[in-house]
């Protein structure tokens, strides 16, 4: 693709902290290369703001290669921008042309309060993991990782679910601000493997209980989460989580839950 430069108008959400009211600020950026990533374009803007003695825009980022799950921008109505199966850092400016206006908002959900500008607090996800997204392992000598035979199909399915980077795009995209896709991916990648089997019933119950406690909405099977997930986590995971929940419901062993 031809390399070109563009001038853009950005409408970016500015918010001092979670208690202050936020508002949109309009910025002009000039001479942006089509080969820059979306975050590099923000770096250019921030350098410009620093040079002008203005406050730069706060935004989350870390690895910038689509695996850490930190970047979290809602760009022109789309979580991580319009590209399929990519995070914001993987979105490139060749998507845009000279003179475009881009509206950038933070993830919006009551369970993800804004820390500053485009940075949101996603600790609710950490607390859901703490409620059951783990396997208990006895201390002692390390067990050989390949000691238990695992069917190839299950291993692949589990691996696909484990691709979830916990970025929260599912919550951001969901009209109900539901975290079911995240929770279902985390439940699936463990319950598909023999190591996750002993705690599967209490895990499903406890993680769903924590999800409700954090104030996420309930799933109405809309599917916007699947459409926006940068890692292609499928709704089949939510069906599996529902099966896990039903299984736990009818099983006495889940009495330990909650």
């Amino acid at each position: 693709m031809e390399h070109y430069h563009m001038n853009l108008t950005l409408k970016v959400w500015k918010q001092k902290n979670k208690n202050e009211k936020g508002r949109f600020e309009t910025y002009q950026v000039k001479n942006i290369s089509s080969e820059m990533s979306f975050l590099e374009m923000f770096d250019v803007l921030n350098e410009q703001l620093v040079a002008e003695n203005k406050e730069p825009i706060a935004f989350d980022h870390d690895c910038r290669e689509g695996i850490c799950g930190m970047c979290s921008m809602y760009i022109n109505g789309r979580a991580h921008g319009p590209w399929h199966h990519t995070t914001t850092c993987q979105l490139h400016m060749r998507e845009y042309k000279d003179g475009d206006t881009i509206v950038v908002e933070p993830w919006r959900a009551n369970s993800f309060p804004v820390i500053k500008d485009l940075v949101v607090d996603r600790q609710a996800f950490d607390r859901i993991i703490q409620a059951g997204g783990y396997v208990s392992v006895n201390t002692g000598n390390a067990v050989d990782a390949n000691a238990i035979p695992i069917e190839k199909h299950d291993a692949d399915e589990s691996f696909a679910s484990a691709a979830c980077i916990g970025c929260g795009a599912c919550v951001a995209a969901c009209p109900n601000a539901s975290a079911m896709l995240f929770v279902s991916a985390k439940v699936s990648h463990l319950s598909l493997l023999p190591q996750g089997d002993p705690e599967r019933k209490t895990r499903a119950m406890n993680m769903i209980h924590q999800m409700d406690k954090e104030g996420f909405g309930s799933c109405t099977n809309i599917g916007a989460c699947e459409a926006e997930c940068p890692k292609g986590i499928s709704l089949e995971n939510i069906a599996r989580l529902n099966r896990e929940y039903l299984g736990a419901m009818f099983d006495g062993g889940s009495q330990n839950a909650i």
């Binding site: 409408k11 949109f24 809602y74 022109n76 109505g77 789309r78 979580a79 319009p82 509206v103 908002e105 919006r108 995209a173 009209p175 809309i222 599917g223 916007a224 459409a227 926006e228």
Partner: peptide, 11 residues
Amino acid sequence: RYAVKAGSQTS
């Protein structure tokens, strides 16, 4: 609320 909504683009 979001200023720009995804609408039918995602569901």
